[in-house]
């Protein structure tokens, strides 16, 4: 077996690439975030809730969520990514939407729409997961009612090793079997809202991989929380010294 250690120098097979996140990076959007995992960078901007046209798309019972996934032309490994919608980007937009749907509650906004635009200036595998992570921070930043922050990561096998967060070199490994399984998890309940697979995997390895994924997701979730708290931290500090005088809050 030739695959014995991570190609990018990571120490362990359950180690994710370095992650960072920041909320409120696009001032004109109602909510926004950037999420970086290794060399993959995802920007998400949320607009809405706002009026939805054409009218036949409206749902009188609830607002709808619309996601738009897009890789920028220069975001690949140097080959130009053809701009514009493609079969792949439509699929990823759809699964992103479905991954986020279980946490957002748009019942207060009938007939309206919340648009999530996810853009990638740079990708190195795991982009749909990075996109979901960025989008859930941006949705929270926009003040959308939601029960949880969805976190996502890819897991899988390369050769005979079970691992998390494959980079492009690992995904493209040719001397043995590869399985790439992007998963999105609701950290509060441990439920999965995205589970796709490219490749083959045994039942035992799949269960092992998903366990590792759950651990990785906990790390990602704390970074997401941190990003939001940092943005609103000023208010927290200000509030701390207002503790002495109650009743500063009245709703009119």
């Amino acid at each position: 077996m030739t695959y014995t250690k991570r190609f990018d120098g990571r120490k362990a097979f359950d180690e994710i690439r370095p992650i960072s996140a920041k909320a409120g990076v696009i001032p004109r959007a109602h909510g926004s975030a950037v999420f970086t995992i290794g060399k993959t960078v995802a920007y998400a901007a949320v607009y809405g809730p706002r009026e939805l046209h054409p009218k036949f798309l409206q749902n009188p019972k609830t607002g709808i969520l619309r996601c738009h996934y897009n890789m920028m032309p220069f975001s690949g490994s140097g080959e130009r990514v053809k701009p514009g919608p493609s079969r792949r980007s439509r699929e990823i937009s759809l699964v992103t939407e479905k991954a986020l749907q279980p946490v957002v509650d748009l019942s207060q906004f009938p007939n309206a729409v919340v648009d999530v635009f996810i853009e990638f200036p740079q990708t190195d595998a795991g982009s749909r997961c990075a996109g979901i992570c960025a989008a859930s921070i941006a949705l929270a930043d926009a003040g959308i009612p939601m029960t949880d922050l969805v976190a996502a990561v890819s897991v899988g096998i390369v050769d005979d090793k079970v691992l998390v967060d494959l980079n492009y070199d690992e995904e493209a490994y040719e001397e043995g079997p590869v399985a790439d399984i992007p998963v999105a998890i609701l950290p509060s309940t441990g439920e999965f809202s995205l589970l796709q697979m490219d490749g083959e995997i045994s039942k035992e390895n799949l269960l092992k991989a998903l366990k590792m994924g759950q651990k990785a997701v906990a790390q990602i979730n704390s970074v997401q929380k941190q990003a939001l708290k940092e943005k609103y931290a000023g208010q927290e500090a200000d509030v701390a010294d207002s503790n002495t005088s109650g009743g500063e809050y009245h709703d009119e």
Partner: peptide, 26 residues
């Protein structure tokens, strides 16, 4: 009990509620 949106916590006796910090006007 968990937060259902981003906001500031207020504890009034046993009741927990959030003051929104962002979001559209309704």
């Amino acid at each position: 009990i968990r937060a259902a949106r981003l906001g500031l916590v207020t504890v009034e006796g046993k009741v927990l509620k959030l003051i929104p910090l962002s979001g559209a006007y309704l």
